[in-house]
Nucleic acid binder design. Structure first.
Lengths: 174, 174
DNA sequence: ACCTGAACACCGTTCAAGT
DNA sequence: ACCTGAACACCGTTCAAGT
């Protein structure tokens, strides 16, 4: 006899993402997710292979969210930089997860589209990919270090961000 | 009656680092470390508080190693970039660990010294910190993405690295 | 067909008892 | 003073038995 479903893959991934932000990766246990979905831990395995697959699904949800935000942003490198950084601050744990082991690579490619377009507008099509990688690497590294608390030698971090962006644009502008 | 020590903190940290590179963070169990040190897991707790403290100690060892390598490098941003990237490739798991939760922040500051000096040589003392942050963020993000397999849109990654370095130097050079 | 309790393997950690 | 086996708590995962 069929039973009405008491949860869904989407609910599980949402719960996982919320718990990740609240309690970090160590807090993201199958138990915690199950409780939040009103179900027992073994039931989760009907919907998702294992915890690694859940982490991958959460990472993909985060990347898709980021891609939407970037797609809605004015298509300039400075506007994209602001959006990217703001998103990372709002989703610190999810942001870290994005670049981890089983990263959602296809989704990342998709998120890169607006950056490629904005880069092409500055340096032309031939160098667009190189320029996009310069920009993305800088923004990713900056936020990563910022979230890790690695900027401790004094100085204004906001200013450092603006400075970096300006110098990159200076370097790229023909 | 005193017993001769059968291991040491240094041996434990070395074992942890080796296991981390071989088997990743999930493989770095107290059991695995203990076996490698010829001792049982509970004995480790005489030398180190818990697994988190071990991870922190491993991270610090990695950063100190990196600091030595950078200090031995010719003091130019391009030479430092090569050394930094090579180190990250040789110590992929350790590199990831460096920017994690309980990062060894003091050691990171120390590793930053040569980068600050090389930056000052290009932009002067006033902007040296901003410039060092631009450079470090870019290099860190680039290697991070590279290690995560995030560069998949084609194009030559070596070229992208050279391109990024050149454009940053272009942007920084007055 | 989904859900669950029970069970198992594995890991971190503590501790009393050895030497 | 360090080392160990035994024990405990906790987590991921499987599975037979329920509905």
């Amino acid at each position: 006899m069929p039973t009405p479903d008491r949860t869904s893959l989407a609910e599980i991934v949402d719960a996982g993402r919320a718990i990740l932000e609240e309690s970090g990766p160590a807090g993201l246990t199958m138990q915690a997710v199950a409780i939040r979905c009103g179900v027992r831990a073994p039931s989760l395995y009907k919907r998702i292979r294992d915890r690694d697959a859940l982490l991958a699904a959460v990472a993909e949800a985060v990347v898709n969210d980021l891609a939407d935000r970037l797609a809605d942003t004015e298509n300039s490198l400075s506007a994209l930089a602001e959006t990217y950084r703001a998103f990372a601050h709002e989703n610190a744990e999810g942001f870290r997860l994005m670049f981890t082991a089983s990263a959602p690579l296809d989704a990342l490619d998709h998120a890169a589209t607006p950056v490629l377009a904005a880069s092409a507008a500055v340096v032309g099509d031939v160098d667009a990919l190189h320029a996009a990688r310069l920009f993305t690497a800088w923004a990713t590294g900056f936020v990563h270090m910022e979230l890790a608390g690695a900027f401790r030698l004094g100085g204004d971090v906001e200013q450092a961000f603006t400075y970096g962006l300006r110098k990159i644009l200076d370097g790229l502008t023909p």
